[in-house]
Write a protein that binds this DNA or RNA. Sequence first.
DNA 1: ATCATCCATCGTCGATCAACGATTTAGAGA
DNA 2: TCTCTAAATCGTTGATCGACGATGGATGAT
Lengths: 110, 110
Amino acid sequence: MARKLKLECCDCDEGAVTLPADESAEQLAKLAWAVAHPARVRIVRLLVSRQACVCGEIVDSLPLAQSTVSQHLKILKESGLIQGEVNGPKVCYCINPQKLEELKALIADL
Amino acid sequence: MARKLKLECCDCDEGAVTLPADESAEQLAKLAWAVAHPARVRIVRLLVSRQACVCGEIVDSLPLAQSTVSQHLKILKESGLIQGEVNGPKVCYCINPQKLEELKALIADL
DNA sequence: ATCATCCATCGTCGATCAACGATTTAGAGA
DNA sequence: TCTCTAAATCGTTGATCGACGATGGATGAT
């Protein structure tokens, strides 16, 4: 976790380099990582296309075992991109629009 | 690599589901993966902020060993997001605007 | 021709991912 | 209560990541 951060590239003395901070890079990396797997991309798209989706439907729409899908859902949940709501014995997942917008903004600003 | 793809969720018979194909999911996953690491995010940002950058400058701007940075550059190159041009004993890297736009579009369409 | 520099690649190591089956937990219904 | 179902978690396995130092190859300078 050392920090060198010299950035003395060509002597472009624009003064306020400010370099979007490391934090921003880590935030973007984290969100990008969440969608850095085809299965997770498909889950996100599925949840965007319909408002909400029960876990079982997601499992059925992917060629993966239930436990594997559950893991992907966990990753997406941890990233904040999706939310799960317990609904009786089932769990209903939906997109977190704020986080999705955050991802879009961070990518768009690249 | 099996393909189940049932997607018989709620009977929303919108007919043309067309579901962006798997390919698109894999393409997005691949590009997202390229920026799914803070170091690579910083490299991309560095290359966007300046037109081109010699490898050595990139190494100096990151708290990582030269070989590690070279690996990240390789990953970014393989994703198509950046290009490297040999320039004498040095290598000059620059962004591939098309690929970057492709990534932005894929994310924006989520 | 030799040497130094820049960069890529190799080989290694520990950590994490991705997948699965099996098991556990929690809620609904008989 | 007991059972069934839905979903999460556990435990394992093989593959890949991410980091590094060391080595190798190409170019430019002496």
